[in-house]
């Protein structure tokens, strides 16, 4: 049965900035675009062919919009993050759920919206806000809470270029339909 004090504690995260601004290690650049296009086998010429990109609606090379997150991923050797309570709050809400036994995680939704295409040289930063934490729910995977976070991406001038809503389910392993309740 859901613990109302615990749920109130989770609710308190809603609307809080829980991460960032985190600055991309590198600006948008052609080599990373090329690696991505090779891996995805995306042959759209506006991503990799300068002459065609120049004659296109974009006027020059652009990055695949769906590559958005790649620019600000922390990578294999994450640089140290500035100490701030805000930067740690995202982990706090997840740690709170972990401590309560909701240790498994699965991503359920991802919504990306693009205000404009990005060109090589654009240097992104991203902030993360906790959008919502659901009440306890019985799902097919188990008993859990949906945590929805919103990431907002800015260029070097502080203009918003894209946003992403990302929803995960934190659940108790072994409490789903497959486990027989």
């Amino acid at each position: 049965m859901a613990d109302t004090a615990f749920e109130a504690e989770l609710k308190a995260f809603e609307g809080r900035t829980v991460g960032g601004p985190q600055v991309a290690r590198d600006p948008v650049n052609q080599p990373m675009i090329r690696h991505w296009c090779d891996a995805i086998d995306d042959q759209n010429p506006v991503y990799t062919e300068p002459e065609l990109a120049q004659q296109s609606i974009h006027g020059s090379i652009v990055a695949p919009p769906t590559m958005l997150q790649a620019w600000t991923m922390r990578g294999l050797r994450p640089p140290p993050q500035p100490e701030s309570s805000e930067a740690n709050a995202s982990e706090d809400v997840l740690a709170l759920l972990d401590d309560a036994g909701f240790t498994s995680v699965v991503a359920t939704n991802c919504v990306q919206e693009y205000r404009r295409y990005l060109h090589p040289g654009d240097h992104l930063s991203v902030t993360t806000t906790c959008d919502s934490v659901s009440p306890e729910k019985q799902t097919a995977l188990g008993i859990g809470h949906f945590v929805t976070q919103r990431q907002t991406y800015f260029d070097a001038d502080g203009e918003e270029v894209a946003s992403m809503l990302f929803r995960i389910l934190k659940f108790k392993p072994g409490t789903g339909a497959a486990a027989g309740g």
């Binding site: 991505w36 995805i40 769906t66």
Partner: peptide, 10 residues
């Protein structure tokens, strides 16, 4: 998931 997004876009 980033890859899933990439293939959907492509």
């Amino acid at each position: 998931i980033l890859t899933t997004n990439g293939f959907v876009g492509r």
